[in-house]
Design a protein around this nucleic acid. Structure first.
Lengths: 119, 119
DNA sequence: TTTATATCTCAATATTCATTGAGATATTGA
DNA sequence: TCAATATCTCAATGAATATTGAGATATAAA
């Protein structure tokens, strides 16, 4: 799924709301297994109705996926979409300016699970 | 300038509007010299009033800078802020999932000015 | 100093978005 | 089947945002 401008616009809009940004961060932490809607709502302190609204918004924007599992609906982060958005932004940013925009090597995420600063 | 959550929220909000996203892309293309407000407005087909409003919004969000130069006000992209936002997103995205989220090497921007796909 | 140029500011309006609470739907277990 | 649980949907309200046009401000040139 290519991250083009209209798609990026939807993704940015989805991430520009405090409750939704928190939800995405909670889901990224949760890993591929995801979390039930209720647990996400609790984690970000949103009412059931508000959680449902914002999760639907994130799903429409393509940043999270959902599946039913018994009584619960499990949401999980769409890592490909999130990294696609980051790449879109990096491309825009680095266009002709790689020296300025390339992050320093020691701040890059490694595959070895090194500790990282708290967000 | 650290890209924390409130700052990212403002940046995402600024980028979630079509005119403003176009403006950022125009300014990234323009390079460090930047462009006059009028030229940016023309490029994204916004009225003088609308261009002023959206440029001020982008500046408040810390994504562009401005300076007066004779009669014109010149706006330029803040590359550090843009890459900081991309990094923020990458960190969130890759948290515990570097294998999934690390972009493939051949899609990475190089420092040698290699051609890239059109956005 | 007068005029032209470039941009900004302001107020009015329209549109979009978030929140709330009530209640509908789906699933499970007694 | 009935009750409990988990989530969604809907309508109403309020809040934030975008657009427009008129006009104010700053700079430069005649």
């Amino acid at each position: 799924m290519t991250m083009d401008e209209p798609r990026a616009l939807d993704a940015f809009a989805a991430l520009s709301q405090e409750t939704r940004l928190k939800m995405v961060r909670v889901l990224v932490q949760a890993g591929t297994d995801g979390m039930a809607a209720g647990a996400i709502g609790d984690a970000v302190e949103a009412s059931s109705s508000s959680a449902s609204f914002h999760l639907a918004h994130l799903e429409r924007a393509g940043l999270v996926r959902s599946r039913r599992e018994s009584r619960s609906i499990i949401y999980s982060a769409d890592y490909a979409a999130l990294s696609g958005l980051a790449e879109f932004l990096m491309r825009d940013c680095c266009q002709g300016h790689p020296a300025i925009c390339t992050p320093a090597p020691q701040t890059r995420q490694t595959a070895t699970g090194s500790p990282r600063r708290d967000l």
